[in-house]
Design a protein around this nucleic acid. Structure first.
Lengths: 347, 347
DNA sequence: CTGAAAGCGCTTACAG
DNA sequence: CTGAAAGCGCTTACAG
């Protein structure tokens, strides 16, 4: 296998220069005359030489690698949305000539697993990391930030602890909620319910709060029995809707789900009771999941541009790695209502 | 940021031993008395020390990193299946305590891009690689294998060039074709068509050949105008079906698509002409795509277990990395017909 | 413009 | 059982 690992000494010998010069050529130093440069380049090509990455890093170069940490219990490989996020991150890193080391954190309570995460940073395998799916307050993430590692977070807001090495990207969920409610109002709905997402996540809290506020601003009464607990899964949507249907209260005419998966589950529960969407209840989701358009009925939803968001998050993280500036980097993306066929006009 | 990088010297000092001993503890040498070991372990914990990965690698350790190279032009982040494969690979590596560095190769003709792939190997950033989506004969992959790098390939068969550092995983597409045709026969179909996949890929060839052979074995005539060219995309299925519908020949009563996406496209084209599945034509796909079950009608398809296949491929690659044995590692997974509602019994 | 040499932080024969 | 020292393959001040 490894007959003759080619190193800079061999290149230097073939080119008739010192290893210092070979290194200068590789690193594009300006003070190498083009004649020398050419000799070295020719030797490099001839020997098919690539500098050993470990040696370069040990001598002080960056790894050009970003860690992507994805919190997700269970069978993640089945979740379309999660996968899409992973690939978005990889693609945008690759555009900037960075590598991505990906991790799935199945359980944030598992000390051994969390230690693996820490390890990757302290080992200097990566220049920075991006966390997706963490709770709003995750001690090990805070610890890494406190240690000075450059970390990009999604769905987190710690304005009181803004530091240059904490890079932040969020969606403006308030805006999404307002659009959804405005649209429903336009259709004549006044009795509107909500299935909550995971409220240990920022977006879960924000959607909940956004709903309350938007309803209040519009002067609409909130019926507490129409506010259902849940998380961000199809199953949670299904169960929440079942609970709602089993209650004795009258049903809302419209309902907003914390995301599209939740909406799918809710619609499934309705259908099991012989109720149809939008005839018997109007439903709005969040995210614009790949399946939403193909869903029956096509789901009206608040679209959120994950691809663009992660691209920009990655760009900011890399910028901070390369510039180490004092800038606080933070973005908030707006979202847009996509009207399809899961809501009806009330007569 | 980097105030005091902790290194083995500091651990050694705190523990009152030499760096050699620290290293022995970290690497689990047997000849360290437990008393010494404990002192060192305590110091490591107290200093929150993690050995620098580059230094370890430079001194001869493996990187414990596998490269995952995914050939896919265009907007890969949108393709459910591709994403699922990526995550499967990451998860199975992680189970074995390996890291995965993922690359998207958008264009195998792009020399710069291919050079990035080469680079990662020669730089020793990875201990081995897995390629998905390459053509059956891809010069740069062959070159890397010839160089002795340990490489896992999917959907490739080079029995004449079997070497221990080429690890191979395939599906038995012949078997799938036979099952599909047997089922259609059972329903009374004798006029069966095929939309081909990408025939620069092994599975494209194998499905085509498997179809021919199975038809022949069953004594069924093959109508050349029912054999449509295509690739593995929805669009190709749509276009192939359109061509078929525009022809003057009578239509087949059933058609097998190279994969489920192709089947979706074909069904869309049929529907545009007011033709329904399975009333007007029976359709069978391949893969059991996440959407197939939810499709209208639910798609009958040949299921293939990507998750399991990639898990085993990863295990074999890692085994070869760690054992460097002369074993030829190769697996072939069977596939299974999943009957849903896209085929009907002929009267 | 360029080479000799120190240094990055480990591992591991070698010697005791 | 354990330490001193060489070596892994680079980069980069330093000196000329």
């Amino acid at each position: 296998m490894k007959k003759t690992e080619i190193n800079s000494t061999e290149v230097a010998r073939l080119a008739g220069v010192s290893r210092s010069t070979v290194s200068r050529v590789i690193n594009n130093y300006s003070n190498v005359p083009s004649k020398t440069r050419d000799k070295v380049l020719t030797a490099i090509k001839e020997l098919n030489y690539f500098p050993n990455a470990s040696a370069q890093m040990l001598a002080g170069k960056k790894s050009r690698t970003i860690g992507l940490f994805m919190v997700s219990s269970g069978e993640i490989a089945v979740d379309v949305l999660t996968n899409m996020m992973i690939v978005s991150v990889i693609e945008s890193a690759s555009d900037l000539d960075y590598y991505v080391l990906t991790f799935i954190i199945r359980n944030t309570e598992d000390e051994a697993m969390i230690n693996n995460v820490r390890e990757v940073f302290y080992q200097r395998r990566i220049d920075g990391g991006i966390f997706i799916g963490t709770k709003h307050d995750e001690p090990f993430v805070e610890e890494l930030i406190a240690q000075g590692f450059i970390i990009g977070v999604f769905d987190q807001e710690h304005t009181e602890k803004a530091v240059p090495n904490r890079v932040v990207a969020n969606f403006n969920n308030d805006s999404g909620m307002k659009q959804a409610i405005a649209y429903l109002l336009g259709l004549g709905h006044r009795q509107i319910g909500l299935i909550n997402g995971d409220r240990s996540r920022l977006s879960g809290i924000k959607k909940y709060e956004g709903f309350y506020e938007a309803m209040k601003q519009q002067g609409l009464a909130i019926n507490p029995s129409w506010i259902l607990d849940g998380d961000f899964t199809e199953q949670a949507g299904y169960e929440a809707m079942k609970r709602l249907l089993q209650g004795t209260e009258p049903l809302p005419t419209a309902l907003i789900a914390a995301n599209d998966s939740v909406a799918f589950g809710a619609i499934r529960a309705l259908r099991e009771q012989g109720l149809n969407v939008p005839e018997h209840m109007s439903i709005i989701g969040f995210d614009d999941h790949v399946l939403s358009e193909k869903h029956n009925p096509p789901l009206t939803t608040v679209r959120v541009d994950f691809k663009q968001l992660f691209k920009e998050l990655m760009q900011m993280v890399i910028k901070q790695i390369e510039e180490q500036s004092d800038t606080i980097r933070e973005i908030k993306y707006d979202c847009t209502l996509v009207i399809r066929e899961s809501c009806r006009r009330l007569d």
